[in-house]
């Protein structure tokens, strides 16, 4: 029962990722990201319950606080200082959506078929772990897709957040027994890196007057 709940919630994560990337209004995009982060926290909590592993409640709590509250709050705070509409991406809305879905499906399919090769235990090879690692791969791929095709520096930060969500999903689906010592470090890094990026992005905006990263290409690569 819980296993099914986890599977369906994780599928919702793919939807929220696509929405967060494709939605051209940045406040709504941040909102979608926030929803996704809450979903991750929910999945962690469900795992904690079904595997009877109290350490995972910490995971759930830290994910909720860091990704569900702090990071979206930071994003909104800095968004006020810049503008709210995204710089046009490289692709139009429809081709972009189609390409994004295609990339996500490819990653999903690969991870779904190869999940069993990555783990030693039979118990970890079955559902919902398999579905979860496939979802993680899809979210990861969507994050990459955003990094490659978006030109708005703010949107790229959201892409990085998605990428990190994908990695955290894989963490839980591959290694649900991970100790909490590493957790603190990983979460701190994520929050600080987003903060730093936003700080510098705001500086870029103030000096260049736009968030269009294609201007950044004027520095020789």
């Amino acid at each position: 029962m819980i296993s099914y709940a986890i599977m369906y919630i994780s599928l919702l994560m793919i939807v929220t990722s696509l929405l967060a990337v494709e939605w051209r209004m940045l406040p709504e995009s941040i909102h979608t990201y926030q929803v996704q982060s809450v979903l991750i926290a929910l999945i962690f909590a469900l795992y904690a319950y079904s595997l009877n592993n109290p350490a995972l409640y910490y995971w759930s709590g830290t994910a909720l606080v860091s990704k569900g509250i702090i990071v979206p709050w930071l994003l909104r705070r800095y968004l006020i200082r810049v503008h709210s509409k995204e710089t046009a991406p490289l692709l139009n809305a429809l081709p972009s959506l189609v390409l994004g879905i295609a990339a996500a499906l490819l990653a999903f399919g690969w991870a779904f078929n190869h999940h069993a090769d990555l783990v030693l235990l039979e118990s970890l090879a079955g559902e919902p772990f398999r579905m979860n690692s496939a979802v993680a791969a899809a979210v990861l791929m969507i994050g990459f897709y955003a990094l490659l095709t978006r030109r708005d520096a703010f949107k790229i930060v959201i892409g990085l957040c998605l990428l990190e969500n994908g990695v955290h999903m894989s963490l839980i689906s591959l290694a649900p027994s991970i100790p909490e010592t590493a957790l603190i470090g990983v979460v701190t890094d994520v929050v600080v890196s987003v903060l730093m990026l936003l700080y510098i992005v705001t500086g870029v905006y103030r000096s260049a007057g736009s968030l269009d990263t294609s201007h950044i290409a004027r520095l020789r690569g």
């Binding site: 930060v157 990085l160 890196s193 730093m196 990026l197 510098i200 992005v201 870029v204 950044i216 520095l219």
Partner: peptide
Amino acid sequence: ESLEAGYKYLL
């Protein structure tokens, strides 16, 4: 220039 370099580096 240095802001853009920092952005690229960090990202």
